[in-house]
Design a protein around this nucleic acid. Structure first.
Lengths: 207, 207
DNA sequence: TAGATTGTTAATCGATTAACAATC
DNA sequence: TAGATTGTTAATCGATTAACAATC
């Protein structure tokens, strides 16, 4: 897999994946970049450019086979293997994400929930019991943890992230309102809800 | 307020706002674009360009007054007035967002929760009772609703959005996995959690 | 005043769109 | 084969960075 594909392209891939999934459900066998571009409100040129970053999945005169392309994109996005997920900070949002991850039919599996609050110990959320955050070190010895979700208050996020990095965690899904400082080989994907809300607020004015 | 400022710029504004808020809390009075750029890991040039889309907030030889700039950005983002928010779909995620909106110290106020499920009627979430979705028409006659949050299954989102648009709602914070088709004067801000998770998954591979 | 740093113009870089030869 | 549509190169557009005159 070639490297250095821009995040602008990557951000669009899940959307292609979603549309192709819908076409597949509707029994559509083939689609041209032109047809797809009309449905998705992007240019056909962009679709072809984006896909050709990863290889030639289409056929001249025919277009793209929906099922094949769907599966290729899934593979590109790393959806062919199961990712084990652990979550830190079982508040309202943490609990919702825990449920969400297990409910979605994507190959992400919530295998551990951790909190500092003694009162939450052994509470069942999304089908699994909450553990104390100190138990994580033992936990990680027995389970591979691919992704750590941080649904913690902002001041707690950085220290926890540091400990997790030192224990070998290399990917974070960060909901805390803070920019994590992590080594270069660690990946962080941020979901900053307040930023999103402010962007909406801006776009509501000025029109 | 000038129009046509790119979303690339807008997306960065909440981050500036957050950093300035922290500086303000720490009692920092002034900051140069250079200092700020080092903390935020962006170029000083970009900071100055971004800010100058909205006006000259700095002073040559001095830099920017932190409190003044913080408040100006707040104003730009529309944070000087309270936004009334109603939420549709009180599942795990909906309940978390309801709590979140009221908990954040931003000027967004959750004033109504709506669901189709009779069993949820009058349940208290985030301090307010869940109403039935049919009650929304009466509700909106008595309350101004600035933003509708959609935390619904994807098939329910579009029909609900259509009804809300026809009742006058002009801004949506959409968590459903679907691209809403709305008139031009309606603003949609999407939070697609699964897209975010797939982007993380991609970035974990290929390194 | 001299030094610092902005606001803004110009240069560069990257991403998107258009065009078309290759080919199924 | 003829028509359709890709893969890919070239052109355009927009965003970022660099440079520097203006000015506090």
């Amino acid at each position: 897999m070639e490297n250095n594909i821009s995040q602008a392209v990557i951000r669009r891939m899940p959307r292609y994946y979603r549309y192709l999934g819908e076409l597949l459900e509707n029994g559509v066998e083939r689609i041209s970049s032109k047809e797809l571009s009309e449905r998705m409100q992007v240019t056909a040129s962009q679709i072809r450019q984006d896909l050709n970053n990863f290889g030639g999945f289409g056929q001249q005169g025919y277009g793209y086979n929906v099922e094949f392309l769907y599966e290729e994109i899934g593979r590109i996005l790393g959806l062919t293997k199961v990712h084990n997920v652990a979550l830190f900070g079982v508040g309202n949002l943490g609990a919702a994400i825990a449920n969400y991850v297990n409910f979605e039919k994507l190959p992400f599996r919530m295998i551990g929930l951790f909190d500092v609050d003694q009162k939450k110990k052994d509470r069942i959320v999304g089908g699994i019991p909450v553990m104390m955050i100190d138990e994580f070190e033992d936990f990680i010895k027995e389970h591979r943890v691919d992704i750590a979700v941080l649904t913690l208050p902002k001041d707690a996020a950085m220290p926890v992230a540091e400990r997790l990095v030192s224990l070998g965690v290399r990917a974070f899904w960060n909901f805390a309102h803070v920019d994590l400082m992590v080594p270069d080989d660690v990946v962080v994907e941020n979901v900053h809800l307040s930023d999103s809300l402010m962007q909406l607020s801006y776009n509501m004015t000025g029109r």
